[in-house]
Design a protein around this nucleic acid. Sequence first.
DNA 1: TTGTAGGCGTTATCAC
DNA 2: GTGATAACGCCTACAA
Lengths: 359, 359
Amino acid sequence: MTEKRTEKTGTIVALPRKTGSAPTITDVAELAGVSKKTVSRVINREALKASTRVKVEAAIEQLGFVPNVQARALAFRKNFVIVLFIHDSTSPMAMTFQRGVLSAIADSEIALAARPLDRSAPHLLSDIETFLTRQKPMGAIFLPPLSERDDIGELCQRMNIKYIRVGSAQLDMMSRSVWSNDREAVMAVVRDMVALGHRRIGFVRGPAGFRSAREREAGFRQALQNAGLPMDETLFADGEYSFESGVRAGKVLLTAPVPPTVIFASNDSMAAGVTRAAHERGLNLPGDLSIVGFDDGPVAMQLWPSLTTVHWPIAEMGALSVRKLVPEMVLKSGEMADDLPSMVESTLIRRESLSDAKT
Amino acid sequence: MTEKRTEKTGTIVALPRKTGSAPTITDVAELAGVSKKTVSRVINREALKASTRVKVEAAIEQLGFVPNVQARALAFRKNFVIVLFIHDSTSPMAMTFQRGVLSAIADSEIALAARPLDRSAPHLLSDIETFLTRQKPMGAIFLPPLSERDDIGELCQRMNIKYIRVGSAQLDMMSRSVWSNDREAVMAVVRDMVALGHRRIGFVRGPAGFRSAREREAGFRQALQNAGLPMDETLFADGEYSFESGVRAGKVLLTAPVPPTVIFASNDSMAAGVTRAAHERGLNLPGDLSIVGFDDGPVAMQLWPSLTTVHWPIAEMGALSVRKLVPEMVLKSGEMADDLPSMVESTLIRRESLSDAKT
DNA sequence: TTGTAGGCGTTATCAC
DNA sequence: GTGATAACGCCTACAA
């Protein structure tokens, strides 16, 4: 029976099982006949005699008790939240990553707070600091190109906040990084192209200052060299990862004196742009021109012809980031945090837009 | 000077401006020479003598004080969070909506917590209840098709949680609804088609049980009737809002004895599918077949030919939902909550995929 | 293994 | 208009 001693009078009143408010740790403790601390231990899975634990769990069940996250956050000085910093909230990549994060925390009490930021904003660092100060999250995840800034990592370390930097190459120490092997993936793509008889391979760059763009181009050049192909700079065009820039780059490459037989674009949006440029010139795809992209985003399958592209396992990277950040909260029993990889493989998805070079 | 009396010894120690921990309301109160409650009043913009307010604000500024959200949440019994319930976390629509929400809360102290849910999950309602119990959010937003369930609205009312149901028609009372006029938008589209000389108009349905699908079909049928066109059921095909279902529907419609000259698909993904089906049959687009979609998602522009479609102002709906949910926190001065609309207009975007009927 | 006392940083109540 | 004191629901430190 719940009792309460009023300060003023000292009388003892029996509270009629208060209807409105949710049961608290105190209610559970009373019902189970233990102290609040013991209930707290059950909640936090600390060592406890089995019989006591069972007793408390029964009380929790009976009352439908759900620990108050806000109170725990206050006491822990940590919010049960993971913060996701994204550069461009319109990018399918950020969305897919978020899906991976959400799937990883679905059964935990962790929430996700997304925060779009412009990498070139004047107060970027202080914006991040304010947000982290407010949220006091369990951890933070930075997507490219934000993740490429070392000063952001230093900020988190200073604030004593765990973080993961996501990218197309290792950007920080293992425990703070999740990355994909874009360079090797692109090399594999080029090997395939060469095997199909292609010798003139066009390349559409990503924007300067994006590590992913650099890695993909590095892989491309390395592969050309491995295949003994010449490094013809007229086969390189600049892009900005946008559809429009892909159209422009496509036009440039296709109006060259001797145009390429296949074009690799550093992401799917630009590959879609190249596809449009080719259609506009009345080319027959993939007969007259093969096109390959990178990302395997939602457009890839919907293009005509469907896009052969590198599957960037960005959703897996999202789930993996969470598991590395808060292993104690999301790992299944038996899983070890140390076993978690840091790198995930990007793999080629063969669709219609790549065929052999016509001879 | 901050002082602290230790319980054990009773000695008074001067705390050297504790470096690690952030300043609290107590620090501000001391510096300003007022009580904690007065500082609290400043934070919450309650009535206060101007001179006191200035004094406190100066202290806040000097200390760089940021109110602890967790402590406020505990005291208020409300978290500074808006929960977004989404059905399909892969859908571009959900992502675009989220972008609108994030833009609306960007400068506030509110965070967004996204929660994907399967509408057909067995414990849907109790899942929602648990999540809301945990989060104690300022408000909740339900995207279609979750928003179409009345029992979810009732749950929120029982839990005393403000909510918004988003859809393609008014689903709840004004203050709890944000919707777009899909029906009228589709009617306008059909009028355009008729004006271009089209008489045989194909229609690809959305999935049964989606209100948006019903509204769009209703608008379509109404428009046919208004134009005095026959209701030829062979011009209707089923779809599931997916690309693949669009391909199937396109094949069905295009193999009819007298195929349509234009096909309206109830969303962009299916329109992309129809586009593929047309390409596969070797049709010349839009000469042989016009295609129109609905959503104006990222694919629309990247298709070949680019897709004429209805712009579904889903990002605006996201921002609007937030403004209706927590006007006191996000409205600019001068804006009135009562002035906020509940309905936003879907409008036709003319691109390449719709041309006049060849005669 | 379990319990007690005190604190986390804020707001509510109710005086003055 | 402003302040003292008690919540809010949980956790940490320490004691038993």
